[in-house]
């Protein structure tokens, strides 16, 4: 009986350790993922991509949702910054968390967002990044390392500053 009890405690303990994994912080590698872009969105003519495909580019990964009030605060800043940096090889990727497709598309239209966006199928990306709410933004360097994490809406200035730094480092 004791064997059973202790193995139960063991499994639970191990499970707890697994569950208490935290989000990837600055300096840690960004977990890989696959995205299917929403209708009308593409990256280099592809309808789906993995983080691995983005190697060599700076990636701004933004978790959002149409029902999220605070996301609306930062939506315009993202589109503007994207317009500014798109030709310098920076990739913006929006991932809609627990959202329904028609609403997501309405939201994207409302803010005229042109950078690639995707639904998080099976909530997998959100789980891997252990997000605790939306919006959350991860900035990933060309080697696939997280360099900046923002909980809650990001300031345009912060976004620009981080990208500038990365671009300077990169080349």
């Amino acid at each position: 009986m004791w064997v059973g009890v202790f193995s139960l405690i063991g499994i639970l303990g191990w499970g707890l350790v697994q569950t208490s994994k935290t989000r990837p912080e600055a300096g840690q590698p960004a977990p890989d993922f696959t995205v299917q872009f929403l209708d009308g969105y593409r990256w280099e003519d592809r309808t789906s991509a993995t983080l691995d495909d983005f190697k060599g580019h700076i990636v701004v990964l933004n978790f959002w949702a149409s029902w999220c009030v605070e996301c609306r605060v930062e939506a315009k800043a993202f589109e503007d910054t994207w317009q500014k940096y798109a030709d310098q090889g920076v990739i913006f990727l929006g991932v809609a968390h627990v959202d329904v497709e028609p609403r997501s598309l309405e939201y994207l239209k409302e803010f005229n967002i042109s950078y690639p966006n995707a639904l998080d199928y099976g909530d997998r990306i959100s789980s891997d990044y252990e997000i605790t709410g939306v919006p959350e933004t991860f900035i990933i360097d060309p080697s696939g390392q997280v360099v900046y994490v923002q909980l809650g809406p990001i300031q345009e200035a912060t976004l620009v500053q981080t990208l500038e730094q990365l671009l300077v480092q990169g080349g």
């Binding site: 569950t19 208490s20 994994k21 935290t22």
Partner: peptide, 14 residues
Amino acid sequence: VHSFARSAIGPLFF
């Protein structure tokens, strides 16, 4: 739903 380990309370309890 996701991470909970914002405080050290969990591992200590266990």
